[in-house]
């Protein structure tokens, strides 16, 4: 087990290395630097700026310098947000995004699994049809449509919730409700369909027939024999779901004006703030990779057939 974890951690290093290297060169070779779109700067000023950010050095040297800084946890200065380093910017915004993302993931898993199980147990009855229609809505309606429509209904017409913003303290919980539900909706829908399908498949399996032939009550059959096996696909979906939630938070944070990484990320992309873009990508990839790692381990705990070799 320990061996497995160590091996998995070591295998993350090349992946992260490739991601960082690729994005570094991709961005450096891209046409149009961060300062090219501004009004014509005097030659001398431009030279000074380039020098300040070490952009006048040969590419190889820049790359080594950047790698060295990253290992020290320094993601460089932001080109646009003067006087702030990328590390600072990410540190300020990340907690908000993580809070929002984890609440959304939690909601998606909790409701998705619940609805999926009910739907499978009531297959082809009205509960199933209702749940699956809701799931198709969740899969079909884009986040940036759900978000504004929720705002329109619950904030502007009914005045139940704040339209947007991020307040700390008790009022913050109200402000969190809409963004969290919006963000969780597509993943709720997908998880509901996934768990319905896998519960149905397990229900048809031989070992469930055995359990019923033993005279167990249907509720015991479901709780004890069906759920564990049926949850495995859901667990392996958590990795991609988390990636999706990170992406989705870009839109949700924009719509609901949440001061999170996603909003900064869009800003940096629109402003061509290259150091900030790279910092975001590195942090996002790290989170994703870590999440997949956790999912693997949880999966191993659930499925005794997996041996950590």
């Amino acid at each position: 087990m320990t061996k497995f974890i160590i091996r998995r951690v070591l295998s993350l290093i090349p992946t992260m290395f490739i991601i960082v290297t690729l994005s570094f060169f991709l961005i450096r070779f891209a046409p149009g630097g961060p300062f090219s779109s501004e009004k014509k700067l005097p030659e001398q000023v431009l030279q000074n700026i380039l020098k300040k950010y070490h952009m006048d050095e040969p590419l190889g040297k820049q790359y080594l310098r950047y790698m060295g800084d990253i290992l020290k946890g320094d993601l460089g200065p932001s080109y646009r947000y003067k006087d702030q380093t990328v590390t600072e910017l990410i540190k300020q915004t990340m907690p908000n995004s993580i809070l929002l993302g984890s609440i959304a993931l939690g909601l998606a898993v909790f409701f998705g699994v619940g609805v999926g199980i009910i739907s499978a147990l009531k297959q082809n009855r009205w509960q199933d049809y209702m749940a699956m229609s809701l799931a198709v809505v969740g899969i079909s309606v884009p986040l940036f449509v759900i978000g504004p429509i929720l705002q329109l209904v619950f904030a502007m017409k009914l005045h139940l919730l704040p339209t947007s913003g991020w307040i700390t303290g008790r009022a913050g919980i109200l402000a969190l409700i809409m963004p969290a539900f919006t963000l969780s909706f597509p993943y709720f829908a997908y998880i509901a369909r996934l768990s319905r399908g896998s519960v149905l498949e397990v229900l048809r399996s031989d070992y469930i027939r055995t359990a019923r032939a033993k005279g167990l009550k249907e509720s015991v059959v479901v709780a004890k024999h069906v759920l564990k096996g049926a949850m495995l696909p859901v667990v392996s979906y958590l990795g991609p779901a988390f990636a999706g939630i990170i992406t989705g938070s870009v839109v949700v944070e924009t719509v609901f004006v949440v001061p999170g990484v996603g909003k900064i990320f869009v800003q940096s992309a629109l402003n061509r703030d290259y150091t900030l873009i790279m910092g975001d990508i590195i942090v996002y990839s790290l989170i994703l990779v870590a999440m997949n790692f956790v999912v693997d381990i949880v999966y191993g705990f659930l499925d005794p057939r997996i041996a950590y070799k």
Partner: peptide
Amino acid sequence: LRSIRGNKISMIFQDPMTSLNPFL
């Protein structure tokens, strides 16, 4: 019926590889 299943009348199935719950 459930108090008879597995108690008075029990069953063994064809494929022992899939008839036992792999997770328990």
